[in-house]
Nucleic acid binder design. Structure first.
Lengths: 209, 209, 209, 209
DNA sequence: GATGAATGAGCCTTCATTCAT
DNA sequence: TATGAATGAAGGCTCATTCAT
């Protein structure tokens, strides 16, 4: 898809290379979260990282690769935070609760990174080709919820869901989480625990048999 | 805040002035919806409007004012579509149903405009100063839902809501609608009626006493 | 081949548009001739034209279109200078003489433009895609000579030429002219008339029966 | 002229130093011949040589010195190929024939190196200071031809040549050879032997008494 | 009122060169 | 010696904005 071979192969990277990339990704996150996608130029990122603009180009094939890395690292962090917490739950009801709780906690504890990715995704909705990424992202994020819903239904704990209605339910849960994130961007002092409790309640009620 | 006096005062505008502004706003909506916020340069908008780039600058103090107008017109159209439909309902339960239904219908019937505003808001979340607008927007949009919830609670039809929990509920409903919009951008052939029914069900259940 | 539609259609251009383009092309010629292809950046060209860099981008889709225009204008000037002079000759021998003479005179009288195009072609030999142009250029330039040779042979004035040997002869004549141009770049005080006489003699002798 | 002392003095170079320089020069030739002067960055050369970019800077004061070396080695190879072949000829007529033949053979057998130098010279015609090199090159290359012409004239085998007319003749021969090279770059399957025969014929005729 | 023309800042990227290790 | 890392200048290009006509 891109002209150059992306040396995504992490094994080949030296320690210092990895460190620099990590640092730059970190600053990119910071910058995007603070000034927004549109204003987050390589120059701005470099300035905040106190490095020359060229350094970024040296470590990343282009801006896109950098942004992709921001998203990839986010997704990995998210997944490794959420997945184990859900897996240790026994009932689908508990799984759903933990899914909501751990997502909101994750957002709360990784505000900048999450904000940055929100910005990224927002700005890629219509951009050629990269719609793919946003779309992939969404499927990956939706699937676990749908699985929980299906499971709960099979176990007779949740109400009946057809396939489409499970999807709407999943989307609604996901939108509640993402919407919370945006609300948190606007109002950093939001009472996260309260919000979490409320969401758990709402979706506990609305999935109940 | 801006160098020029914004002639927001609509009374002073000649007929032709209003017509031109309307035409430009229309084209801006089209452009943003089709190519996305980032690609929607004044040049691109002008090209689609088959007018010179300068015309836009002539009628709008700057790009921001144009985009603001897109949002304002959206909000007015939205409000005049939604408000009367809700007002004719008697029970809060019906109000809520109609709120959801009419919002989704409005989105479905005004896709371009809604998509454009989604793009706009997405890209303005963090931008300096304009956080205000998005925020105002949200308050205006949230209030009616909160009112419905409060009313339903007072009438003993809805379950108990504290002030914060009413807000979370309202936000969740709003997020469901906005999230639906984004889903519709990605999948234009979505079954809107089915989605609507599901949402109504979800929030009917989750507000029930 | 390029993403944008080139508005090469000259009819659509306003007078001022044409004038500006002409001025910019003129400055591009000057710049390329004086500092060479590699150093002839848009910035340098703009500086010499005493205009902003953006003006060039405003009038030409990209650098390539500008350079192409330099080449096109050169070829048109060359053709309208050479063609009529040859056509008025009766014998192939005279045609050949006039071809050589008028080419060298043209070079002498349009030094900068010719130098610029030499630079252009030199730097496009290997560049992807644009090899085409250089190649087209060459065919267009070689054909008239081959025609003269063929004619002279048919009239029994020139010695026998097979098709390949006519081509080698044509190339040799063309190379002599282009080589003279380069020599003139290095030694501006070259005695052009003497050089012309000598070339005429050489190719008069070497085509004779 | 350059900041660093150029260690042109070959005596001082260690064996390994010489080997590295040779390897780099070799790769530079390859690169320039294949991708052209403009695309032949130090990075590209280093990549093909499978060495780090810094190595080149370590062994050559700057890019210019490297390119110069490419030219120097070319000239040496050329000279040691051509000179002995001419010297063994007795008559000027044969010398001229052999000059042309051996030049074309040399080009044919050293395509990459010759193409590279053509690229180099093309791009250095106007570049500051380096005009010198191209010029020196030319004198060195022209002189042998002029000597042959003078000799042939003195022996009464060639027609009369004044000093300037001998120079034009020499240039024309040289241009024929260089022009052939460029033609060969464009059309690698050119029949070199045929081309050679034709050139020999042309210049045999045009120098004859 | 409207336009085409012009501007200048900013963007991403490439690259020769320098330097610590 | 060799390397990877870093730099900073320059390049082509886009774009919101200004302005004379």
């Amino acid at each position: 898809m891109s002209k150059k071979n992306k040396p995504t192969n992490q094994k080949q990277m030296s320690f210092i290379e990895k460190a620099r990339r990590a640092q730059i990704v970190e600053c990119a996150i910071e910058t995007i979260a603070e000034v927004g996608y549109t204003q987050a130029s390589l120059g701005e990122i470099a300035k905040r990282a106190k490095i020359s603009k060229g350094v970024i180009s040296y470590h990343f094939a282009n801006k896109e690769e950098l942004l992709e890395q921001v998203a990839i690292e986010y997704y990995m962090a998210w997944h490794s935070y959420i997945a184990p917490r859900i897996e240790t739950q026994k009932s689908p009801k508990e799984m759903l609760r933990v899914y909501i709780e751990s997502n909101l906690t994750f957002v709360d504890e990784n505000r900048q990174h999450v904000f940055a990715v929100i910005e990224l995704l927002s700005n890629k909705i219509t951009a050629d080709g990269k719609l793919q990424f946003a779309s992939d992202h969404d499927e990956a994020v939706l699937l676990p919820i749908e699985n929980i819903l299906t499971l709960g239904m099979q176990e007779g704990i949740f109400r009946e869901f057809t396939k489409p209605s499970a999807r709407v339910m999943a989307l609604t849960i996901r939108n509640a989480i993402d919407g919370f994130t945006i609300e948190l961007m606007r109002k950093p002092h939001l009472d996260v625990q309260e919000y979490t409790r409320e969401l758990v309640t709402i979706f506990d009620i609305s999935t109940k048999k």
